[in-house]
Design a protein around this nucleic acid. Structure first.
Length: 362
DNA sequence: TTTGCCGGGAC
DNA sequence: GTCCCGGCAAA
């Protein structure tokens, strides 16, 4: 009787299988695979693909195995050939950028980047126009159960990095560097100061008055600092320079495009509940290589002047997990199953109390 | 239908 | 604090 207690509170110490094997003649049939969940293997793998995700990625990147070769080293190392760039190289890159972004976003083709004014509205071009007036409010009436406008505090810092960390990082960097390039399509203007660039964007692209000092950082999304930005930029493009310009674009800023053609819903759902473990165990930069469906980590995101989507994702991300904290239910057999109803006294306390099993953790 | 366990109540 | 259980949702 008293021997029972330990395992309940000490997850690591008590391993039931021993007991199971010895004393469970009756329930034996069921308890065969008691150990399966022991290896940490599955847990880790599961982390990323919460849904039939992997397939989406495959679809996006046809058998060519796009994920294979380029991704891993794509965004970190900086090839040597890039060092002596020169203006010509810049122009190339810029041109390619413009071209590619144009080809990937039909929406902007129709509307030369004027539609999204200063409205903080979340992704106006994407969301259905039916959205209620206070578009800042709920993005999806159906799933919006938790407070939409005020994301719950439990935002894992890593997640934040993953989402908008880029912009903040960039800001930090930009204070050190000198050239800033406008990322608006067909623009590519290069200025020497961030403030100048912001003004340029505000005036020329956003149609704002320069007087409106309140730069909410939105402009930051539209330009990039050349030294650092170029690397990322060219990294994204490096693959295409020689041959087909449009070929390798997708990986650059797919963040705006859901991995699946079905688009929006899946995009918003994606973040549903990235097990915190994943986020914490892998640094943002490492996440991508493994699965470029997460392109979120690629800086070039900002290549396209579509600021809001980036942010729009965040609230969705945050809202979801808190909305349904319930665990998916692990595959591990629980005390109930292992010991059976008639050996309830063998269950861990949690199981006895109908709480989450503490002995057979998932 | 079974199972895991959340939420909440009783003690 | 421990203990129990109604009831929900996933399998």
């Amino acid at each position: 009787m008293e021997a029972e207690r330990p395992p309940a509170s000490g997850p690591g110490c008590g391993r039931p299988p021993l007991r199971t094997a010895g004393r469970d003649p009756a329930t034996a049939p069921v308890s065969v695979p008691a150990p399966p969940q022991v290896p940490g293997g599955p847990a880790v793998e599961f982390a990323l693909p919460q849904e039939p995700e992997p397939r989406a990625a495959d679809l996006g990147a046809p058998g060519a195995g796009a994920a294979g070769p380029p991704t891993p080293s794509a965004h970190i190392p900086v090839p040597a050939h890039r060092s002596p760039p020169g203006k010509a190289r810049l122009d190339e890159v810029m041109a390619a950028t413009a071209l590619t972004s144009l080809s990937t976003s039909p929406l902007l083709l129709g509307a030369p980047g004027v539609t999204f004014s200063t409205e903080p509205c979340l992704e106006p071009w994407r969301e259905a126009p039916v959205q209620p007036p206070g578009c800042g409010g709920g993005w999806d009436p159906a799933s919006d159960q938790s407070s939409p406008s005020t994301p719950s505090p439990p935002l894992p810092p890593e997640a934040a990095h993953f989402l908008f960390g880029e912009s903040t990082l960039r800001k930090r960097k930009s204070s050190l560097q000198g050239l800033f390039q406008c990322l608006w399509k067909r623009c590519g203007k290069v200025l020497s100061s961030a403030s100048g660039m912001q003004r340029h964007i505000r005036l020329v692209h956003l149609g704002r008055q320069a007087e409106l000092e309140q730069s909410d950082g939105e402009e930051d999304f539209y330009y990039t600092e050349l030294d650092s930005g170029l690397d990322l930029l060219t990294d994204g493009l490096s693959g295409l320079t020689p041959g087909s310009p449009t070929a390798s674009v997708p990986p650059a800023f797919p963040r705006l495009e859901p991995p699946e053609p079905l688009a929006l819903p899946s995009l918003l759902r994606l973040p549903a509940l990235p097990p915190p473990s994943v986020l914490s165990t892998t640094s943002p930069s490492q996440v991508c290589p493994s699965d470029h469906a997460h392109q979120g980590c690629l800086a070039p995101v900002r290549l396209e002047p579509q600021p809001t989507p980036v942010r729009a994702c965040a609230p969705a991300l945050l809202a979801k997990p808190s909305a349904n904290p319930r665990k998916p239910r692990g595959d591990a057999k629980k005390c109930r199953k292992v010991y059976g109803m008639d050996h309830r006294d063998l269950w861990c306390t949690a199981c006895r109390w109908k709480k989450a099993c503490q002995r057979f953790l998932d």
